[in-house]
């Protein structure tokens, strides 16, 4: 009792603070720290489930699971590279698209509330189960041959008045580099995905744009800056910190919905190869983290912090 009385006010407040945070700390240690260690363990061991007692046994196998994943497993490498590739295409597109849309939506115009509500709809409709069911149904429509929803829509699209192939060959003849053209075609091809994935990013950018003090624009106007200059000299630097937030969010989000996760899930719960599944999870997580660190580091160098 006497000891407790000796605490200063600051220490008391510190204790209360710990009390507030405590449930999360316990959860974090129980579910995250412990699980991460266990995932690491599983990756280096062969795991056999003890059906009678409900426990499991670990037999160390060293790097065997990693070797299997990279040298023997049929589809892991392709899926991993295509997931990373898709992500690298998507991230800049999503960021620029959402910044652009946020700037449009930030201005006052009649019916703004309705338009904003519509733009957030994809976040609501983005349910894994529904997408899965729809894809299944598309497959059945196509007689089980085509596995990609995009292929079905592509055949529908060919009846359009605009001949895409003609346009592409025209740009090729103009001497535009093929890789750039591929990127643009891929971008146009996935406009649906990009719009669907940028709901939250748009909201974050709108909030960011609103936090820019209006006096900055006034100064720019008085100094005679054009709209283009205002964007690059005022708007862009001011939203730069939020670009980092959005990049992190987009990368994490696109990875949690990528096919690597599906693969890891299938390997674990359909084929009961827990070690291999852990390797998949671990490798993809490490790659995500490396990409995150690289990109965020690169942006952070050029970021200007107002405060």
């Amino acid at each position: 009792m006497r000891k407790k009385n000796k605490l200063t006010l600051l220490q008391k407040r510190g204790l209360t603070g710990i009390l507030f945070v405590l449930p999360w700390v316990v959860g974090f240690i129980l579910f995250y720290v412990r699980s991460l260690i266990m995932t690491g363990q599983f990756a280096f061991n062969e795991l056999t489930i003890d059906a009678v007692n409900g426990g499991y046994q670990l037999t160390p196998v060293g790097w065997e699971n990693f070797r299997y994943a990279f040298q023997v497993h049929g589809s892991f490498k392709q899926i991993l590279t295509s997931s990373v590739g898709n992500m690298l295409i998507d991230v800049p597109l999503i960021i620029f698209f959402s910044l652009f849309m946020a700037m449009l939506l930030n201005k006052k115009f009649p019916g703004r509330a309705v338009v904003r509500a519509i733009f957030f709809l994809p976040v609501i409709l983005n349910s894994g189960a529904i997408t899965e069911a729809m894809e299944l149904s598309e497959q059945m429509m196509a007689g089980g041959i085509s596995s990609q929803a995009a292929e079905v829509t592509a055949t529908v699209g060919s009846t359009m008045a605009l001949d895409i192939d003609y346009l592409i060959s025209m740009f090729m003849n103009l001497g535009i580099p093929a890789s750039l053209l591929d990127y643009i075609v891929a971008a146009v091809d996935r406009i649906n995905d990009i719009i669907a994935a940028s709901g939250i990013q748009i909201v974050i950018f709108i909030a960011a744009l609103q936090s820019i003090p209006g006096s900055m624009y006034e100064v720019a106007k008085i100094e005679g800056a054009t709209g283009y200059e205002t964007f690059w000299k005022v708007t862009f630097p001011m939203v730069m910190p939020h670009i980092i937030t959005n990049v992190v969010y987009t990368i994490v989000d696109s990875f949690t919905e990528s096919e690597v996760v599906t693969l890891a899930y299938e390997v674990a719960f359909d084929q009961f190869n827990y070690g291999l599944s852990s390797v998949f999870s671990l490798v993809s997580t490490i790659i995500t983290c490396i990409i995150l660190v690289l990109i965020v580091g690169a942006i952070q160098k050029r970021t200007f912090y107002y405060n």
Binding site: Y56, T256, A268
Partner: peptide, 22 residues
């Protein structure tokens, strides 16, 4: 750690969670 929690995809910890609750 909160930021780490946001960044780590849930599928990294799915197996241990499954084992734990099983």
């Amino acid at each position: 750690c909160v930021v780490v929690m946001i960044v780590i995809p849930a599928h990294t910890i799915m197996l241990p969670l499954y084992m734990t609750f099983k």
